[in-house]
Nucleic acid binder design. Structure first.
Lengths: 149, 149
DNA sequence: TCAAAAGTTAACGTTGACGTTAACGTTAAA
DNA sequence: TTTAACGTTAACGTCAACGTTAACTTTTGA
């Protein structure tokens, strides 16, 4: 079969069933097809989406609302291929594209800011490692008060 | 004076007074000295600490608990200079240093993971920008159905 | 076929991270 | 000195992001 039940998805993703349903409830995960009886039937696409959301949540520390904004833009870009017809539609599409560009620019700025700070943190951690190892060496080379000399 | 009242700290940091007190309450910010009457008297060190916490919260998306762990280690390294006396103290200090090294290694791993994912995101955002701008160019060069030719 | 396993919705509970309000004490400037 | 501005603690409120439980229906394997 090409579809998964919610427990399969939960196990594959590491999320709880509640969380999966919750994310659907708030519009973060697209609602899957249902069986005759009403069971959710997920596809690979749902799994991929969940992975993306988890990455954004865990790594970027975004709220689900912020993630939703990002994912929405991304989706819009994909669905939103060549579909302009007349002058008004062109004008509208232009406005949409400009709005998307604005939001994406904002997000780039945020990501760059995060990258910068993360690199600072990384340096500090390296520094701490050095200091710890120096401390360990000190212990080796300075055994005890008046020992062996 | 070398001390600040809570409202000064709030304005300097952009946090609310409530948040500052809350962070002290959960042990994230060291409790400042008090005046005769009981008013909190902060120093520059408190301000610096608050900046660090804010960075970790906003950029790394850590919970306050996680931040506390990071900050604690850092503090320990600073306070924890050459203070070994006898063999048992040396052994204890060695264990402490090894434990700190373990935790710092963990944190480095997490930061590296975050950096990697952030760079992926950054690339994707660039890609989106390109696509949006292509869309805009398309609109310019394909004005209207059967226009001007 | 039929019970156990797994699914569903609905609703209330919980936890972290504060916001808000109340009731009161302290500082500082007029 | 006195009063407005600012500080304090204590307690309850809130919001996001789920956890948990209940009451019920659908699937499934022996």
């Amino acid at each position: 079969m090409d579809t998964f039940k919610i427990d399969d998805v939960a196990k594959a993703s590491g999320l709880t069933k509640r969380t999966i349903r919750y994310w659907e409830e708030i519009g973060l995960l697209m609602a899957p097809e249902r069986s005759e009886g009403g069971m959710r039937l997920y596809t690979r696409q749902h799994l991929e989406r969940l992975q993306q959301i988890m990455k954004a949540r865990d790594v970027l520390g975004y709220t689900l609302q912020e993630i939703q904004e990002f994912v929405a833009i991304r989706e819009e870009l994909l669905n939103h291929r060549q579909t302009y017809l007349n002058v008004e539609d062109q004008e509208q599409k232009k406005q949409e594209l400009l709005e998307m560009k604005r939001i994406v620019s904002q997000q780039i700025e945020m990501v760059d800011q995060k990258l910068e700070t993360l690199n600072e943190f990384r340096k500090e951690l390296d520094h701490m490692t050095t200091r710890i190892e120096n401390g360990l060496v000190q212990l080796q080379t300075t055994p005890r008060e008046g020992d062996s000399n």
